[in-house]
């Protein structure tokens, strides 16, 4: 009996700290952003109309209007920004998957003694700042950068290739930056995979490729889903990569949001864009968790 109160106390504490954290730093800012998205822009500080005004001293009056969302849905610029973000995030995730899967597979099948060093190599880029690493690519992709210089020196090209400030560079930057997020969850699944299943598949007449498609691939789907989600979601709202590597015409929500917020000082519209992005991210996340639950139930 004496242990009980202390127990529940620590239980409340353990569950309570993250809860308070989430309330203060996730839910509250989100509510503020949502409130701003319903306001009107104005010159002044803060640059938006208040949510409540106090009329006759007592009665609060709520000022809410959805014109920002209406604008998002009617203006081509914003629709294009969302569509283009979705497209770039989707293709980057797919390319990252194609590169990461063989990497994860090779690491999972490597001898135990080299597995940890290989994993360290995957994580190593995180030890340098994300911004610096993306910036470094400008030096490589520049018209007098490393790649163009080498190609010119070998006489393979006459004039420098336009690599930097293209959509290609944006894909490259996203794939490069988020590759570890794809490798790690797939590795985690493949490492736990019982290779006897592959022996059983071979014994039942499946050639290696068929065994992979019928056994390994379906059994690694949870890792693939998790990896795709971990790349797709940050790629969707990515700002640094399109800003540094993208061209003036590379349209992505993150960039548009930045422009609305800092250049146009249209906080309500920027907030509406942020909420729109959040909804866009939530959809694949919810689909993923539905799939996972179905998998577990089956």
């Amino acid at each position: 009996m004496s242990g009980r109160p202390g127990h529940s106390c620590s239980g409340v504490f353990v569950a309570g700290v993250p809860l308070v954290w989430l309330l203060l730093f996730v839910l509250l800012p989100l509510l503020i952003v949502f409130a701003i998205s319903l306001a009107e822009t104005r010159t002044g500080s803060p640059p938006y109309t208040p949510l409540f005004t106090w009329e006759a001293g007592f009665l609060p009056r709520i000022h809410v209007q959805a014109s920002n969302y209406a604008l998002l849905l009617s203006d081509r610029l914003y629709i294009d920004a969302f569509l283009s973000s979705l497209r770039i995030a989707a293709t980057s995730s797919f390319i990252a998957l194609l590169i990461a899967y063989p990497m994860a597979y090779a690491i999972a099948r490597a001898r135990e003694s080299v597995r940890t060093p290989l994993l360290m190599l995957v994580i190593l880029p995180f030890w340098t700042s994300f911004l610096i690493r993306v910036y470094a690519w400008t030096g490589i992709l520049n018209s007098n950068g490393f790649i163009n210089n080498v190609l010119l020196d070998f006489g393979l090209i006459k004039a420098p290739l336009p690599l930097l400030h293209t959509e290609f560079a944006v894909h490259l930057g996203i794939v490069y930056s988020y590759l570890p997020f794809m490798v790690l969850p797939i590795f985690a699944v493949l490492e736990k995979l019982d290779w006897t299943y592959l022996e059983a598949a071979a014994d039942l007449g499946a050639r290696p490729l068929k065994a992979f498609l019928r056994v390994t691939l379906p059994l690694s789907l949870p890792g693939i889903f998790a990896g795709v989600l971990l790349v797709f979601i940050p790629a969707l709202g990515e700002f640094i990569v399109p800003e540094l590597l993208g061209g003036p015409d590379t349209l992505m929500v993150g960039r548009v949001l930045w422009t609305e917020f800092f250049s146009n000082r249209d906080w309500p519209l920027a907030s509406a864009l942020a909420i729109g992005l959040l909804v866009l991210v939530l959809v694949p996340a919810i689909v993923f968790f539905r799939l996972m639950r179905k998998e577990e139930a089956a």
């Binding site: 299943y197 071979a202 050639r207």
Partner: peptide, 20 residues
Amino acid sequence: APAYARPVNMMFQSYALFPH
């Protein structure tokens, strides 16, 4: 000859039934 080309089948100790 690789396992997939042999006219024999094995019952594994762990059974190795495909879980999916």
